[in-house]
Amino acid sequence: MKIAIASNGNTLESCIDSTFARCNFFVVYDPETRAMEFIPNPNKDLEEGAGSASVKLLESRSVQKIVASEFGMKIKPLLDSLKIQMIVVKGSKKTMKEIMVMLNH
């Protein structure tokens, strides 16, 4: 089970980013193997279609859950059809480390 987290930096101390599609880095984390991967977001500066491009990127890594503090309007139907779960953490300044510890539960 792989989980993607939208992060604003590439360290464990970086915070969760305010938007999903235009975040700085995606962290793909696997709680079973505790493996993590930081992927720089290539769609960061796209004018349009950043959401679907980011979903495609994460789908190609077979992510099943996405943690972000906000999702765009067009994301939900896309993720629902791919059966990816959305986890919305509103307005918090949790770091990657804290989220990973929570995901280990």
Binding site: K76, L79, D80, I84, Q85, I87, V88, V89
Partner: peptide, 10 residues
């Protein structure tokens, strides 16, 4: 517990 929202795609 953590105040997050999530959906159930399945």
């Amino acid at each position: 517990g953590c105040g997050c929202n999530f959906n159930n795609p399945e």
